[in-house]
Design a binder for these strands. Structure first.
Lengths: 260, 260
DNA sequence: TCAAAAGTGTTGTTCATACACCCATGG
DNA sequence: CCATGGGTGTATGAACAACACTTTTGA
């Protein structure tokens, strides 16, 4: 939208017209490469994990990094390529074999990282997304990856040695989901489609990195139920001791305070 | 970060790496244009306003749009150009004459819009920022704009007829500040450096589009004071009737719940 | 003196936290 | 029977909302 012509607009014969033409002939200006990076979360064994990929080539060879790829840009007027969201979904399928619509994966734009020098080869601007994958789907990962090593890494065991500025990217993503957990329904995206109170609580504890009082959490859970956010589901869950009721997330029910 | 070489990346020797990079630099893939758009807010007459610019050229000639410009990308290894943040700051100065550091303007990345076709001329990916400008500085705008019309437009009087997808951009920005107002100190960025309780309340009302109970808001105000977020400032503010005490924002005091 | 805005008090509701407690089941 | 975890009750305090109320000023 910002447009080159807009400000200088009146195409009279000013010195500004030069830059007008330059801007319009898009090839004159150098353009950055634009990629989409994906921070993919899941919860395994009550532990928040991120999908990392071991880099096979330079730079940062043998370092762990977050999966990502170039945004497909068309080459003309007719074809302007894919959207950022589509690029992110495509990347998710390529890396994990998981399809967003089919598996009801939550995918949201996180932040755009564009500091010069973050990729030593060239100017790269990277639009980061984060995805929340249900535990049951986590296994699919092995199949989707081509040759490169992929692994679920606990956010607690993760050092500060990721490739590029991916430490920052992952850190930002963690902050985001921690912040959103309390006032948006993202917690349900990290739990099986039917779940018990304790399972949801485990997710909350994994994300926030602290313990919740079981009784208080149950009350909070009940409030969500009366608000129509969750509802009982048929069946029970077998635990170590007493079997527990299972619930499911109600897609239509609006979360309190989530007008957006 | 996603990298081209990463996935394919079986490049063996270091010697090869240089030439590999050179080879890669040749633009095999088409790249998008990347711009920075700016949603600049201020509060005038207890009304939330956005700075819009009338477009002089096509497309969307004579439509109102949000200011924006291209991100400067270097053309080589040494120079990779300016960061997104720098581009946003530069754009702010160019359009309004306001300097971020000097005038303590709040500037934050909002969202990245990249749908194909949003600019009919070419593929444009636009990283949007929003800025919060104190009322006293709003006048500077007239000076900074070159030829093109610029105007503070009330968000309430704004239709759905902005250029490109700028309706969406502005709408997203409004949502953002509405959401952040309650749990972050952004409200102080829309008020003079010293302010009264009523002035801050007016800002809150302008942003949220609803009225706050003066008594209750005062209590909330006091709580911020005991929390060390704001402190009394010397002087008084002359109002229509009874003069009011003025306060100032304490830069160091951390906002409750704003760990990030 | 009167309107308007500054400033205070009171009450009720909701929600988070802490913590004590009962109940059912598998070992 | 007994430990574990499912499930319930109660008390406290913080914060918000609604609303009545007093005080201070300029016109």
């Amino acid at each position: 939208m910002p447009d080159p012509t807009g400000k200088l607009g009146h195409d009279s014969g000013h010195a500004e017209e030069a830059s007008f033409l330059q801007a319009y002939r898009s090839q004159e200006y150098p353009k950055p490469s634009v990629t989409v990076d994906l921070v993919i979360f899941t919860v395994i064994d009550s532990d928040l994990k991120v999908l990392l990929i071991k880099r096979g080539g330079h730079p940062y060879k043998d370092c762990w990094a977050v999966p990502g790829g170039f945004v497909k840009v068309g080459d003309g007027y007719d074809d302007q390529g894919e959207s950022l969201e589509e690029a992110a979904e495509r990347e998710l399928v390529e890396e994990t074999g998981i399809e967003v619509t089919k598996h009801e994966v939550y995918l949201e734009q996180l932040y755009t990282f564009g500091k010069p020098g973050r990729d030593p080869r060239m100017r790269v601007i990277s639009v980061a997304y984060y995805a929340l994958v249900r535990p049951g789907l986590a296994h699919v990962v092995q199949a989707g990856t081509d040759a490169s090593e992929a692994e679920w890494v606990s956010v607690n065991e993760m050092g500060e040695n990721l490739a590029f500025d991916h430490d920052n990217v992952v850190g930002t993503a963690i902050q985001r989901i921690r912040g959103k957990l309390d006032y948006s329904p993202i917690g349900f995206q990290l739990v099986p489609k039917t779940f018990t109170v304790a399972e949801l609580r485990a997710v909350y504890e994994a994300v926030q990195g602290r313990n919740y009082d079981p009784g208080n959490f149950r009350r909070r859970f009940k409030r969500m139920q009366t608000d129509g956010i969750i509802e009982p589901a048929p069946g029970k869950r077998q635990t170590l001791t007493k079997p527990a009721k299972v619930y499911r997330f109600v897609m239509g029910g609006r979360f309190p305070g989530s007008s957006a």
